[in-house]
Design a protein around this nucleic acid. Sequence first.
DNA 1: ACGAATTCGTTTGTACGCAAATAAAACCTG
DNA 2: CAGGTTTTATTTGCGTACAAACGAATTCGT
Lengths: 149, 149
Amino acid sequence: MATTHGTDGGAPGTYVLEDQPGFLLRLAHQRASAVFQEVLEGRNLTPTQFAALVKLGDTGGASQNHLGRLTGMDRATIQGVIRRLTDRGLIDNAADPNDRRRRHLMLSTAGRDLVENLLCEGQTVSKRILDPLKPFERKQLIRLLRRLS
Amino acid sequence: MATTHGTDGGAPGTYVLEDQPGFLLRLAHQRASAVFQEVLEGRNLTPTQFAALVKLGDTGGASQNHLGRLTGMDRATIQGVIRRLTDRGLIDNAADPNDRRRRHLMLSTAGRDLVENLLCEGQTVSKRILDPLKPFERKQLIRLLRRLS
DNA sequence: ACGAATTCGTTTGTACGCAAATAAAACCTG
DNA sequence: CAGGTTTTATTTGCGTACAAACGAATTCGT
């Protein structure tokens, strides 16, 4: 007999929005962003800004496009993100002498200090997002999500 | 010994962006939206618009805020979504006689026809999103995502 | 019944996310 | 080395997503 749930179709006329992966991913992402804002309240930082800062810390410096690839933002998106972080003095934004098309991005001293202080809160965000799951399920979810993209 | 992966922290100074659930959810959601656009190419419809239409078909009619709650959109967001769908003649948007604050929303005839034709493509979208996973993993992922929100 | 609190919808402002067009610089190839 | 292609960054336009403030309508407590 056909169940209402499951991913294998069900009855011909059946389409349960709440069971579709796209819909569930949208809601899960919304909740993740909400948790981020809650934990980093008052920091005035978005998840994408945080990602850009962390990756810039990891790499020690990158071009705008390259950083975008590392953090999953296209050129139009990363442009605004970098502009806002540069305006706040968290990123040093210099022309690349070797390739005048590129902007060489680095964390400023203030940026480096900020990231260092924020990594701990980043861990808290991840823990809170995964809070509804049992430990082994958290690893499962991470593993499955990695394989989706 | 501590591994580089896993959700239980790892070494004190370690924060691997690619292992964080928020970052992975953002990427997965981006990919899901891309698949949606690909499958429904030329339809000029977004995932949220699709969700609103489907839910309006399920319920047979709802107020704007109520529909927003069902589809995970806040008032400001659902407002624009409904306006665009109404402008395109897919939704009938009437004043509620019982409560003059509310707008009573229903699928128009064109909207009902469209949704009926689109449900099949919706199934295709879901299948394509879950394509990288084995069948039992697809059910696992859906189950875990449901518990996150 | 009346004032307070709540709900509904709108509007404004900020920030992703992406398509498409543009300009400048670097590259490749003949 | 000249001409075409590719890469980098910017800009415009549209569509979510959400906070905050607002007016209008309803509901609730007393």
